[in-house]
């Protein structure tokens, strides 16, 4: 024995999971989506993603080092995840300086002002995206066409997203059946052959990531499944009432940011509730608000706003939705 014995309170053994391993797991889960996006949007994906990730990591490092004067913790990978998720929620032709602005905002205002990892009430990537959406509405809603403009970055040929086409058409008083020519079929939607944010288009890639996250026990099924089920049933009811002016539920769950929102954004560990019952309530809220914004609101897409709104309710949900305690209470002694 070369050293003095170590003494610490029990337990004396610990599990394998670390913050780093969780974040690495999320990054791995995002790889299929990234590859699919590179295939669909080409060079734009590469530029947007790398700019966002590098800026996020750098911002976190600089803030920790020079503003907070704390240990720098960029090694845990949470800034990389934020950068990836932010990039995946942007169009692939977004000018680089806008991405930098968004990334700095996401990390600085979305995360570090609250004290860094674990203390932020809102998902930083969504904070960044919504900030950009409000500040640069034109750039943030010009979507490159899939496959066709793979070799272009800022000057890619743009088109509308399926949700945008639908919203615009309905606003002009057209029936959905008239629009069907402009909207890709379900299989194309499922694979990701459509305009949209670079990470949101391919449902199959996102589902692959979901399976990985479940397999690695990084998240539980509750939030994604309940969000998707809620959106499906809510839009299903609307569709059954009036199929002429309401899109089918399958269309709704395959378009826009619903998949990436449900699987990667809403399940952000920091900003989602702590108990299973709380998670279900939270997911229910996200689903309902998403549909309300999509169908009745001014924006064609509402997942980001829905998640932000429900993020705000998380502390309240945690306060009221307690886990089921072991054993009923009795007066004793």
């Amino acid at each position: 024995m070369s050293q003095l014995l170590t003494i610490s309170p029990s337990p004396h053994v610990f599990g394998q999971k670390t913050v780093k391993s969780l974040m690495t797991g999320v990054i791995i889960a995002l790889i299929p989506t990234f590859l699919m996006s590179v295939f669909i949007f080409g060079i734009g994906t590469l530029i947007v993603t790398s700019v966002a990730v590098v800026t996020c990591v750098l911002t976190e490092y600089l803030i920790q080092k020079y503003l907070m004067h704390t240990e720098t913790r960029i090694g845990d990978g949470s800034a990389i995840v934020t950068g990836l998720l932010l990039a995946f929620n942007l169009p692939s032709n977004l000018p680089w300086w806008i991405i930098i602005l968004g990334s700095v905002f996401a990390i600085g205002i979305g995360k570090m002002v609250y004290g860094g990892l674990g203390n932020n009430p809102f998902n930083p990537a969504i904070v960044g995206r919504v900030f950009l959406l409000i500040s640069f509405p034109v750039q943030m809603t010009s979507w490159p066409l899939p496959i066709a403009s793979r070799m272009q970055y800022v000057n890619a040929i743009t088109g509308a997203t399926p949700l945008g086409i639908m919203k615009e058409g309905l606003r002009n008083g057209e029936a959905l059946t008239d629009l069907s020519g402009q909207i890709p079929g379900h299989m194309e939607l499922f694979l990701g052959h459509m305009s949209g944010s670079l990470g949101e288009v391919s449902a199959i890639a996102l589902l692959l990531g979901f399976v990985w996250l479940l397999y690695k026990r990084i998240i539980t099924w509750h939030i994604p499944v309940v969000i998707i089920a809620t959106v499906f049933s809510f839009t299903g009811i609307l569709w059954l009432i009036d199929p002429v002016h309401n899109a089918s539920p399958v269309f709704h769950i395959l378009t826009g940011g619903l998949m990436i929102g449900a699987i990667f954004m809403a399940t952000d560990l920091v900003t989602s509730p702590m108990t299973k019952a709380g998670m279900i309530l939270y997911a229910l809220g996200i689903g309902i608000i998403t549909v309300v914004i999509r169908v009745f609101g001014a924006y064609p897409e509402g997942v980001s706003f829905a998640i932000l709104i429900m993020n705000a309710f998380v502390p309240l949900i945690n306060r009221t939705m307690k886990p089921k305690r072991f054993g009923k209470e009795v007066k004793y002694g």
Partner: peptide, 19 residues
């Protein structure tokens, strides 16, 4: 002189309850 190394949280209350 120290005869062992404490490796719990940095709190006298916790350490004192331990040993």
């Amino acid at each position: 002189p120290k005869i062992n190394q404490y490796d719990g949280v940095s709190s006298c209350a916790v350490a004192s309850a331990l040993y």
